[in-house]
Simulated scan of single mutants.
Amino acid sequence: MTITIPGYQPGTYVLDPSHSEVGFEVRHMMISKVRGTFAVKEATIVLPENVLEASVTATADVASIDTKDEGRDQHLRSADFFDAEAFPTITFVSTGVREAGADLLVDGNLTIKDVTKPVTFELEVGGFGTDPWGNYKAGATATGTIDREDFGLTWNAALETGGVLVGKDVKITLDLQAARQA
């Protein structure tokens, strides 16, 4: 099957950090969700003629974590969670792109705290276009869910009412915008 994406232009695209971030959400006390972001440090997206041969590498800065609560952010940077001092980055390297019905899926390896596991993200192509300064841009959102404990993020606290403070499943959303290189 041939995939047609309006405006698709092959090339190597490099991250526009001011228009990109990694978001996450996780259950808190099993009754609500906490959301946060990481800054994307760098990303390269290679788009060949056939989108199913595309590849992406991306790196997020662990110290940039922001959940709108500085005390929680400090705890997340600590050895209880991400250990930002010892493991300053989170990386994703794609291993393939495939169709699943009308959807595009990006398979790859996610590394957190030196633990690498295969993950799959559902890809939503935002589009392509030229910005006011003549840069040709690509935008996309990728979403997936991981079990944080698979990556050594096991800290938790039992609640008096039953359950735990932090859920295991973490929804990840990568919002990326990148500029095609000459």
Rank of each mutant, 00 (worst) to 15 (best):
V34W: 07
F92G: 02
T161A: 12
S64E: 02
V14D: 10
D80M: 08
G36V: 07
V93D: 11
S94C: 09
Y13W: 08
N156R: 09
N156P: 06
T130M: 13
L76D: 00
L104D: 01
L174T: 13
V56D: 04
G36Y: 10
F87R: 10
V51A: 06
V93C: 06
F87Y: 14
L110R: 06
V170F: 03
P88S: 13
G126P: 02
L52T: 07
W133D: 11
L52I: 05
E25Q: 14
E99Y: 06
F81W: 09
L110S: 09
F87N: 15
N156A: 06
D16F: 05
D103Y: 04
K137R: 15
R98D: 02
V22E: 03
E99R: 15
H28I: 08
G101P: 05
P17K: 14
D131E: 14
S78F: 00
D16L: 10
P6I: 04
D169K: 15
V34T: 15
R148K: 10
M30W: 09
I5H: 10
R72F: 03
Y136M: 04
G96D: 05
S20M: 04
A84Q: 10
V115T: 12
E21L: 11
I112F: 01
R180E: 03
D114Y: 04
L15E: 02
G129N: 13
K41T: 08
S18P: 06
P17L: 11
T57C: 03
P10H: 01
W155E: 08
R77N: 08
S20D: 01
P48G: 12
H28T: 11
Y13G: 01
H19I: 00
K113Y: 00
D147Q: 15
G126Q: 05
G11S: 07
P10A: 09
V40L: 11
S20P: 02
G23S: 14
I112G: 02
S55H: 11
Q177T: 04
H19D: 06
A178L: 08
H19N: 11
T37V: 10
S55M: 11
G7I: 02
L159N: 15
K33V: 08
M30P: 01
I172G: 03
L174C: 14
A178Y: 01
E99K: 15
T2F: 01
P17Y: 08
P118S: 12
A178H: 01
Y8I: 07
E21M: 11
I65E: 01
K33D: 13
R180M: 05
L104H: 05
V119S: 11
I172L: 15
G71I: 04
A102G: 15
A63R: 10
T59E: 09
T173L: 13
A39P: 02
L76H: 02
A84H: 06
V170G: 05
T59F: 00
I112C: 06
S64P: 00
T44A: 09
S18F: 06
E99A: 13
G163I: 12
A43D: 04
F151C: 04
I112D: 04
T173N: 13
G101M: 12
